[in-house]
Design a protein around this nucleic acid. Structure first.
Length: 573
DNA sequence: GCCGTTTTCGGCCCGACTGTTTTCAGTCG
């Protein structure tokens, strides 16, 4: 079993406990343990083997026992007894916004409704409104929610959500009443999928802003509307919350709306012990109404005796303790990026020429880029034959000589074929400055076969890095299965870097695996995988994932000057 | 169920909005 399997059982326990009305702190304990397991940078079973389960944050004697039972039986006593009393279909009902554990329990006990289909029927036939506290409007909302869930997931990939958020932000920023505006929530923290978009605006006169917001063409319906908060659903299904505050509390409000919930709970618990109170309106001394900090996030942390904690680390995973000990990692900064290691041109499936890509990258302030078009196995992308690759490299060198102010390196994204051979003549690969090795076919090989395939590709000594190393598509397919630890180990040994691919829909490696690879000593390289000049901006998603992984600049090859970048994986150069 | 800068028991964040209510429970973030 992998960590996700353990996390799923723990989460089901927490959710079923909610519905059964367990003590809410006990529920939180299971939620915390779920998150710890989910984001653990190593295999939980390795921790078990060492007998170190109780060392993990949020896991005590009781949950440690549960986990050991889960390892043996796939379930544990408490999980089993909850499932005997409740129906697993109820878990789906928790995804319906506006329906919480109390109402689900009510509906279950009074109407025997135990899954989404039955819930839909109960709402359609007007039986929900017969229950205390529920009315016609609730029925209507429940039906709309069920339809939304049926249309496809409740979370949106980060890149898509951020593009939407930036467009809305720019429209509201143009209003004369807007003083400061920011995208908050999980987009700011860089979570790879987003539940909803949070926008924060400071203004002395918020009413027109809420009014304009409700009337934007993207908006399909207004869900909630008050003096300081408006929630809407866009035509694309994404929910957007807008909060307005006075400018003097912008910092504390931004902190609050950035989250995460877990970070807040820990921070506020800690503040309470210091005789302080934290809310979106600032940090307060007990029994006082004037905040001692509210203007900026830096002030807020300072008032609590902590250094600034970057949004990407605010997940309640021990960052507050690390901050208190002044042991937070110094995270990679966007302006430390000197180059982009992965992009395509019109030679294969890109939309812009070598020169156009280079000029756009130069405008972004880069010192170098690598042109990495596809090899011939990727037919749909018009992959290059050896002849075409040879000519393409010549054109890249020619462009490098012509375009001022940026180095353009020769490279390729070569397919690692089914049997581990590389889809290109080795002498041409040896000639290239940078070789990304990727898998684009036969995703469903058995894990040991896939591991062997990757190892064989790497042992050619020709790969600079592994491109999108897991192959997962956000909200789409899972990655291919293989022995990740063995591959990382080989990467370290053979001097092959692992890519952190920032292209929309991938974010691969994810933050957890990137952290794991880094801990094991592997080099990481960021790539936008751009297929157009606009796509170069996707490198910022890779930067954000690297930050979530707690990576410093030294861990990232893109922060090196171009010569050092090249030598990192090719000591012979 | 977890945890410790009030430490092995007693506490565990805080505020806004809605719908169904006659003052508030439930939900959300």
């Amino acid at each position: 079993m992998n960590n996700r399997d353990y996390a799923r059982v723990l989460q089901e326990i927490a959710q079923l406990m909610e519905i059964s009305g367990e003590n809410r702190f006990k529920i939180r304990a299971f939620e915390n343990a779920t998150r710890t397991v989910e984001t653990l940078p190593e295999e939980l079973e390795a921790v078990m083997d060492r007998g170190d389960l109780k060392e993990l944050k949020g896991i005590g004697a009781s949950i440690a026992q549960d986990l050991l039972q889960i390892r043996q039986h796939g379930t544990c006593d408490i999980h089993r007894s909850l499932l005997e009393r409740l129906d697993p279909g109820l878990l789906d009902m928790l995804r319906v916004q506006g329906l919480g554990p109390k109402r689900i329990k009510l509906v279950y006990h009074e109407l025997g409704v135990s899954n989404l289909d039955a819930l839909k029927e109960a709402a359609e036939s007007g039986r929900l409104r017969e229950l205390k506290g529920l009315g016609a409007k609730t029925e209507e909302k429940v039906l709309a929610e069920i339809e939304r869930l049926a249309r496809g997931g409740d979370r949106t990939p980060l890149p898509q959500a951020r593009h939407v958020a930036e467009s809305l932000r720019d429209q509201l920023a143009a209003l004369p009443q807007t003083e400061r505006i920011a995208i908050a929530g999980s987009i700011r923290r860089g979570r790879e999928t987003i539940g909803d978009v949070d926008l924060l605006v400071s203004s002395m006169d918020p009413a027109p802003i809420h009014q304009t917001f409700c009337g934007l063409t993207e908006v399909k319906e207004v869900l909630v509307s008050g003096d300081t908060k408006t929630s809407v659903r866009l035509h694309n299904g994404i929910q957007v919350d807008l909060r307005t505050v006075k400018d003097e509390v912008f910092g504390s409000a931004l902190h609050y709306f950035t989250g995460s919930k877990e970070h807040h709970i820990e921070l506020r618990t800690r503040a309470k012990r210091q005789g302080l109170r934290v809310s979106e309106y600032g940090v307060f001394r007990d029994d006082e109404d004037t905040p001692i900090a509210s203007h900026t996030e830096e002030e807020l942390y300072q008032a609590l005796g902590l250094p600034y904690i970057p949004p990407e680390l605010r997940e309640g995973r021990g960052e507050i303790e690390s901050a208190a000990r002044h042991e937070l990692p110094v995270l990679l900064q966007p302006d430390q990026i000197r180059g982009d290691g992965h992009m395509h041109t019109t030679e294969t499936d890109g939309r812009h020429s070598i020169e156009e890509m280079a000029l756009a990258a130069r405008d972004l302030g880069y010192e170098f880029i690598v042109i990495t078009d596809h090899s011939q196995a990727v037919r749909v992308a018009n992959g290059m034959t050896p002849e075409r690759f040879r000519e393409h490299m010549a054109r890249i060198r020619e462009a490098d000589g012509r375009v001022e102010g940026i180095r353009i390196l020769t490279g390729i994204e070569v397919d690692i074929l089914k049997d581990g051979t590389l889809d290109m003549d080795h002498d041409l690969l040896a000639e290239a400055d940078w070789v990304v090795g990727s898998i684009h076919s036969h995703f469903n090989q058995a894990p040991d076969q896939m591991t062997e395939r990757l190892l064989r590709g790497m042992r050619t000594g020709l790969l600079s890095c592994l491109g999108h190393p897991t192959g997962r598509i956000l909200g789409g397919r899972d990655g291919y299965r293989y022995d990740f630890d063995a591959i990382v180990e080989a990467c370290v040994e053979l001097g092959v870097a692992l890519e952190l691919n920032g292209s929309s829909g991938r974010l691969d490696l994810n933050a957890e695996l990137a952290e794991k690879a880094h801990r094991q000593g592997a080099m990481l390289v960021l790539g936008s995988d751009a297929h157009s000049t606009a796509g170069l901006h996707d490198l910022s998603f890779a930067v954000q994932q690297a930050r979530r992984a707690g990576l410093p600049a030294e861990a990232i090859l893109n922060t090196l000057p171009v010569d050092a970048f090249l030598k990192a994986t090719r000591p012979d150069l």
